[in-house]
Simulated assay, not measured.
Amino acid sequence: MEKLLLYLRVHQLKEQGFKVAAIAKKLDLSRNTVYKYLDMTFEEASDWVNSLNHRSKKLNPYRDRILGWLNEHPDLA
């Protein structure tokens, strides 16, 4: 959800007349990311954010083992 709010904020700032470099600096993003968000429609951004929640991650099979190590050795976190 945070990325969708960021998408909306980028578009709001652009409508207010901010340049891409100013938006990037204000939101602590790269200019490329600002351009990416400006090129997306709201539907594309929504689909993209939803896809982030459902994709598999490479470390998922090792999740329990890694969490066990971090619980056993909290100084590593």
Rank of each mutant, 00 (worst) to 15 (best):
E2F: 11
E2T: 12
L4R: 10
L4I: 11
L5E: 13
L5Q: 14
L6Y: 02
L6D: 00
L6E: 03
L8P: 02
H11F: 07
Q12T: 04
L13D: 01
K14Y: 06
E15N: 14
E15K: 11
E15F: 07
Q16C: 10
F18W: 13
F18Q: 07
K19A: 13
K19Q: 14
V20D: 09
A21K: 14
A21G: 07
A21V: 13
A22C: 07
I23S: 00
A24M: 14
K26Q: 09
L27D: 00
D28A: 06
L29K: 05
L29W: 04
S30E: 07
R31P: 06
N32E: 10
N32S: 12
N32M: 05
V34H: 08
V34D: 03
Y35D: 01
Y35I: 01
Y35K: 03
K36T: 02
K36P: 01
K36C: 02
K36V: 06
Y37G: 05
Y37F: 11
L38A: 03
L38T: 08
D39Y: 03
D39R: 15
M40S: 04
M40V: 03
F42N: 06
E43W: 13
E44D: 07
A45P: 03
S46L: 15
D47W: 10
W48I: 00
W48Y: 01
W48E: 01
W48V: 01
V49Y: 03
V49H: 02
V49W: 06
N50S: 06
N50T: 08
S51Q: 11
L52Q: 09
N53W: 06
N53A: 07
N53P: 02
H54V: 10
R55P: 03
K57M: 08
L59E: 13
N60E: 10
N60M: 09
N60Q: 13
Y62Q: 09
Y62S: 12
R63C: 06
R63N: 08
R65Q: 14
I66H: 15
L67E: 12
G68H: 11
W69K: 11
W69M: 14
L70C: 07
N71E: 14
N71Q: 02
N71R: 09
E72P: 04
E72H: 15
H73W: 15
H73K: 15
P74F: 02
D75T: 08
D75P: 00
L76Q: 13
A77K: 15
A77Q: 14
